[in-house]
Deep mutational scan, measured.
Amino acid sequence: SKDTIRINGIDIDVKDLHEEWKRLVEEALKRGDEELAIELLERALKE
């Protein structure tokens, strides 16, 4: 798994994120759902 995830052309540092969150965000991006990916990231970062 990578340490960054690219959303809207912005590389976001996710190395401190739990693997499960990372996977969910990557799944959302694979489906092209950037809005969901951002929402998941925000939730993950609050934890």
Rank of each mutant, 00 (worst) to 15 (best):
D13H: 08
D16S: 11
E26F: 15
S1P: 12
E35Q: 14
A44C: 03
A28D: 00
I5G: 01
H18G: 15
R23N: 10
L40V: 04
E35Y: 09
N8L: 04
A28L: 06
E26H: 15
H18Y: 06
K15W: 06
L41K: 00
R6E: 06
I12A: 02
K22W: 10
K15I: 06
E47V: 08
W21R: 02
N8K: 06
D3Y: 01
D13Q: 07
E34D: 10
L45A: 09
D11T: 08
A37M: 03
I12L: 07
E47S: 07
D13Y: 10
E34A: 10
E27W: 07
N8C: 08
I12W: 15
I38G: 08
K30S: 15
D3I: 05
R31Y: 10
S1M: 11
E39K: 14
I5N: 02
K22V: 15
D16H: 13
E19K: 10
D11L: 09
W21G: 04
E19V: 12
L17H: 02
L29H: 02
L36D: 04
K15M: 07
I38Y: 12
I7F: 05
E27K: 05
K30G: 12
K46T: 11
I38C: 11
W21E: 05
S1W: 12
I38P: 00
V14D: 01
L29T: 03
R6Y: 08
K46M: 12
K30I: 12
A37K: 00
K2E: 11
A28S: 03
I38H: 08
K46D: 10
D3S: 04
L29G: 00
D16C: 12
R31N: 13
D33M: 08
G32K: 05
E19Q: 11
T4H: 07
E35H: 12
D33C: 08
K22T: 07
E39Y: 11
L17G: 01
A37N: 00
D16R: 07
R6G: 04
I12Y: 15
L24F: 05
E47D: 10
A28P: 00
L45H: 10
N8Y: 03
R31D: 11
E20N: 15
D33R: 04
L36W: 09
L41P: 00
E34L: 10
V25P: 00
E26T: 13
I7V: 12
I7E: 02
D16Q: 10
D3F: 01
L29D: 00
R43Y: 10
G9M: 03
A44V: 05
D11S: 06
D11H: 05
I10Y: 09
E35F: 10
E39N: 10
K46S: 14
L40T: 04
E26W: 15
E26P: 00
K30P: 00
L40Y: 09
E42Q: 11
R31L: 11
K30L: 13
L29A: 04
T4C: 04
N8D: 08
I5Y: 03
I10D: 04
T4F: 10
K30R: 14
E47M: 07
E26K: 15
L17T: 02
D13A: 06
K2T: 14
V14A: 04
D16L: 11
L29I: 11
D13I: 08
T4Q: 06
L24T: 02
D16P: 05
E20G: 11
E19I: 12
I38N: 06
I10T: 08
R23M: 12
R31F: 10
E20P: 11
E19R: 09
E20Y: 13
E27F: 05
K22H: 06
D11I: 08
E20F: 13
K30T: 12
E34V: 14
E20H: 13
D3A: 04
R43T: 12
D11E: 12
I5L: 10
E19W: 13
E35K: 15
N8M: 05
V14E: 02
W21P: 03
K2N: 14
I7M: 03
D33T: 03
I38T: 09
L24R: 08
A44T: 01
R6F: 07
S1E: 14
W21D: 09
D3P: 05
W21Y: 11
A44K: 02
A44G: 15
L40F: 06
L17Q: 01
E27T: 07
L45G: 08
A28I: 04
D33L: 08
N8T: 03
V25F: 05
K15S: 15
A44F: 14
W21A: 08
E42P: 00
S1R: 08
I5C: 03
I5M: 05
K15E: 06
L40H: 03
R43N: 10
R31M: 15
N8A: 07
S1Y: 12
R43W: 10
L45Y: 13
G9T: 01
L29E: 00
L17C: 02
R23H: 11
I12H: 14
A28G: 00
A44P: 02
W21I: 12
I5H: 03
W21V: 15
G9E: 04
D16N: 14
G32E: 04
W21H: 06
E20V: 13
E42S: 08
I7N: 02
I7C: 06
S1Q: 11
E20T: 14
R31C: 07
V25Q: 00
D3N: 08
L24W: 06
K22M: 10
I5R: 00
L29R: 02
R6H: 14
G32T: 01
I5T: 01
G32S: 02
L45W: 14
K2F: 14
S1C: 04
D16K: 09
L45K: 13
R43Q: 15
D11Q: 05
E27I: 07
E39G: 06
E26Q: 15
E47K: 02
R6V: 13
D33N: 12
G32Q: 05
D3T: 06
A37D: 00
K22D: 01
L17V: 09
E47L: 08
R31V: 11
I12N: 02
I12R: 06
K2G: 15
L24P: 03
E35T: 14
L41M: 06
T4K: 05
V25N: 00
K2V: 14
K46Q: 14
T4G: 02
D11G: 03
R43G: 07
L36H: 09
K46E: 13
L36I: 05
V14C: 01
L24I: 07
E39S: 13
D3H: 06
L36P: 00
A37G: 03
I10M: 12
L41H: 02
K46A: 14
V14G: 03
D33F: 07
I10C: 04
E35N: 14
K22Y: 11
L29S: 02
V14Y: 06
H18K: 13
E42F: 05
I7S: 01
E39V: 13
R31W: 12
S1N: 14
